[in-house]
Simulated assay, not measured.
Amino acid sequence: MVCAVIYSLKDSKQNNSNIVLLEFQGNFQSSETQVNNLKMGDISFNNDKATLIIGHHRIEGKKVKLSKPFAIIRKREKNQEKEEQDKMIMDESSSVIYDTVIILREKYVFSQRPGLLVQESLRGLTRIGG
């Protein structure tokens, strides 16, 4: 049996408050095969709203409270200085230590379809039906 030790948020060394949860309806497609660190678009936050611009599309989201808090944890890297402290906490059966990074209580929900952005200089160039 594998046991894991999860440190609380106040005892964790990995506190990061720059994490937000984004929920989208639908999916994203990319022609890239490697999507790690791929720039998706630009996001801006204004009070309880978020705006995501991807190419020529704009998606707007709103802040919603989560029904249950959501904890994000990270596996602790082994360091020489932490090893002594970890040995005191862990017994023979536990082999993994995690740190709580942040506890999320809100998320941004993007539930509407994206809107098309057209440059101001190109507006009015196409006429339909006439």
Rank of each mutant, 00 (worst) to 15 (best):
S8Y: 01
I72A: 03
E92I: 11
I89R: 13
R123W: 03
I128S: 15
V20Y: 02
S12W: 05
L52F: 01
T126P: 01
A71D: 10
I19A: 07
Q119V: 01
N37P: 00
K78M: 14
I53L: 07
I89L: 15
F28V: 07
Q25H: 05
S95Y: 02
K75D: 09
L104C: 08
D48S: 15
Y108C: 08
V96A: 12
V96Q: 13
S93W: 10
K75I: 14
I54K: 00
R105F: 10
N18I: 01
S94R: 09
F45V: 08
V2N: 08
Q29E: 03
L21T: 06
Y108V: 08
D86K: 09
L116I: 11
K13W: 09
G130P: 12
K10N: 09
L66H: 06
G124N: 02
L22I: 02
Q112E: 13
V109K: 07
K78F: 11
T51E: 14
Q85Y: 09
R113T: 02
G115R: 14
I89V: 15
S95D: 08
N18K: 13
G130S: 15
E120D: 09
Q29H: 03
Q119D: 12
M40W: 01
I43K: 04
H56Y: 01
E84A: 15
H57Y: 07
F28T: 03
S31M: 04
L122N: 13
Q80E: 12
L122G: 02
V109P: 02
D99G: 04
I6R: 09
A50S: 12
G130V: 15
T126I: 15
S111F: 05
F45H: 08
L66R: 05
N47R: 11
N47E: 13
I102G: 01
E84M: 15
E32K: 07
Q34S: 13
I53D: 02
G130W: 05
I6T: 06
K39D: 01
G115A: 09
N27D: 07
S8P: 04
N16A: 10
T100G: 00
E83I: 11
E83D: 12
L9I: 06
A71S: 11
K87C: 11
V96M: 10
I128Q: 14
N46R: 10
V64I: 11
L22F: 05
S8R: 07
G115V: 07
P69H: 12
V5R: 14
I103N: 02
V2E: 04
N15W: 01
T100I: 00
S93Q: 11
E83T: 11
L38M: 14
R105W: 04
G130C: 13
